[in-house]
Nucleic acid binder design. Structure first.
Lengths: 342, 342
DNA sequence: CTGTTAGCGCGTTCAG
DNA sequence: CTGAACGCGCTAACAG
């Protein structure tokens, strides 16, 4: 790799002059700047990132931590983030947290290789976030709330979305609506449970603990829950699964046991993953505005990087997507999107 | 952030000693190492990444460039890469190429912020790869072949997979099998076309240019192609779309025009994306071993980083997945996976 | 065993 | 307008 020194030598100037010609807009004669620029492009010169970062004490890079880079779900989020980062001329890099000692977040966060981060990954411990966040490294959390300076929060209205979809079930006259949770430590799952409870209360229904099931956000756990439900004496009229994967698993479990959805039991999910509209019956669910979420996260992150204090949390509205898996009347149609605004 | 100097001062030793105590396993008295370690953890010390990279001339990080972080498709690839990278104690960061001048690959590749890269992203220009690849930065290409030193190639057997799925259609007695290509500059699409042609030739069928359609890998383009097909006087008996998204679009287009798949026209795709098994009719397609592909790519990359020359290309076998969209006989079943080994 | 020192490549003073 | 010199934080070689 060609270094600044090489460029300076080729251009016949000193290293300091070369630097000025390349980075600053004043203080260099036009003719010498031209010489330097020529030399640089001739040598295919690019400043060494590590050296520049070390000197300037910034990296112009932000990190996005995702639990699993799966799904158009996250893809949209990243698009939202990256479009904003492009505006600000920041690079965006994504990563999953590994397992071992030498995890990626160690490298990126602790060793100061980025200027800010956006986290949607439960495997990144609170402790790591607490000990690295600060004025020189603000962090936007999408999956939890931490009451720590420079920790920002941006999320969809999980509680409201859950309320709405539960209410939708109750409005059809159901009384026995089950809830399937995600992992106990999932903030999102807990918020969705709250929304579920609020709807129930509003309809004057007591929470029945026999109708609360526990999964872990995987399709597999949904199947297991379905099996558990079927072994009870009475089937719920409807099930609200805290995410779509579990809803899929439940539908699949019903299929195996010849339980018809939605006729014998309605199933609704949360997230609106791609397959939700393709399965049979198409899944009623709650869509999060992923692109906007990413954009809002990035925008707030840059405000923090620029030194803004007191950036309030952002909560974006969700959208109820009605499909066949909860439809008792007027079936037919393609099972495609029928959005209902919040 | 605490620096090594701070640690040294607190521990009452020199900066060099502190460094040795932290990084090397010999040459430091146990008691002083202990003091240093204590001071370090007290100060929450972490070496500055930029400084270390600058000094050691390496980053212990590899980059993965993806066109779109969408889909469990890529997710598996990244898992494969990361699992190997973890073994080698390297960090993995993923990125999409942006549009502007200051793209992420500029930063990562040109400014030397990584020790190697894996590319599956047509938006990264050949030229950038050619000008950055070298002994200090080997690159594994998954979506093209570049005959340049330190450019490695790892891929699924696109040609063989295409051959196999085309052959599958021909074996049912079809003679008029259409091909829908991806973008003209897609290496993968071209290989798949080759496989298609080979199968045709083997069955003694002349290539009919009226049966070659051009798409761009999007579902939308599949729909357009379907419309074009329908406006011809004679429908093909079967269609091989160069990827699943386009196959989905074609099926969707047929649906709108009341053409039944597979009864009136069979449709097959390539990739085995998640929805392929969920749509109706479930899509016959070719599965690439994404996880293994990622693992092989990473493994070869590390061989190159370690200085191995002459690493041959790796071509991994694909798997034909028979589902309902190409089944004329013995329908029924769940439409779930029926793998047939290559 | 420990402290001192010389860069890694760059950006930025400060004299000339 | 230009060039020499310093230091960002760290590692490694060398003295003591």
């Amino acid at each position: 790799m060609a270094t600044l020194k090489d460029v300076a030598k080729l251009a016949g100037v000193s290293i300091g002059t070369a630097s000025s010609a390349l980075n600053r807009y004043a203080g260099v004669k036009d003719s010498t700047r031209k010489k330097v620029l020529e030399a640089a492009s001739l040598l295919n010169y690019r400043p060494n990132g590590a050296a520049r970062d070390l000197k300037t004490q910034k990296t112009d890079t932000i990190a996005v931590f995702l639990h699993d880079l799966a799904g158009p779900f996250y893809s949209e989020l990243i698009r939202g983030i990256q479009d904003v980062a492009d505006e600000y001329e920041y690079a965006t890099i994504a990563s999953r947290g590994g397992k071992g000692r030498n995890t990626t977040w160690t490298r990126l966060l602790l060793e100061g290789r980025v200027d800010g981060a956006i986290v949607l990954d439960p495997t990144v411990p609170d402790e790591v976030i607490r000990s690295t966040v600060g004025p020189t490294l603000p962090i936007v959390l999408l999956d939890r709330i931490l009451d720590t300076p420079y920790c920002l929060y941006v999320a969809a209205d999980h509680e409201g979305g859950a309320y709405q979809v539960t209410r939708h079930l109750l409005e059809t006259g159901m009384r026995r609506v089950a809830f399937v949770s995600g992992p106990a430590d999932s903030h999102d799952s807990n918020l969705r449970f709250k929304g579920y409870q609020r709807a129930l209360k509003e309809f004057g229904i007591e929470t029945d603990h026999g109708l609360i099931f526990h999964g872990d956000f995987t399709e597999r756990s949904g199947e297991l829950v379905a099996r558990a439900m079927l072994s009870c004496n009475e089937l719920p009229e409807g099930v609200f699964a805290a995410n779509d994967e579990m809803a899929l698993g439940i539908i699949h479990g019903c299929e195996s046991s010849e339980i018809r959805v939605p006729d014998q039991m309605a199933v609704v999910g949360f997230d609106d993953i791609t397959v939700a509209s393709y399965i049979n019956p198409a899944l009623t669910t709650v869509r999060q505005p992923m692109y906007e979420l990413g954009g809002a996260a990035a925008r707030n992150l840059f405000r923090a990087i620029r030194g803004d204090k007191d950036i309030p949390p952002v909560i974006l509205p969700t959208q109820l997507i009605l499909r066949d898996s909860s439809r008792f009347y007027a079936r037919g149609g393609e099972g495609h999107n029928l959005p209902v605004n919040v």
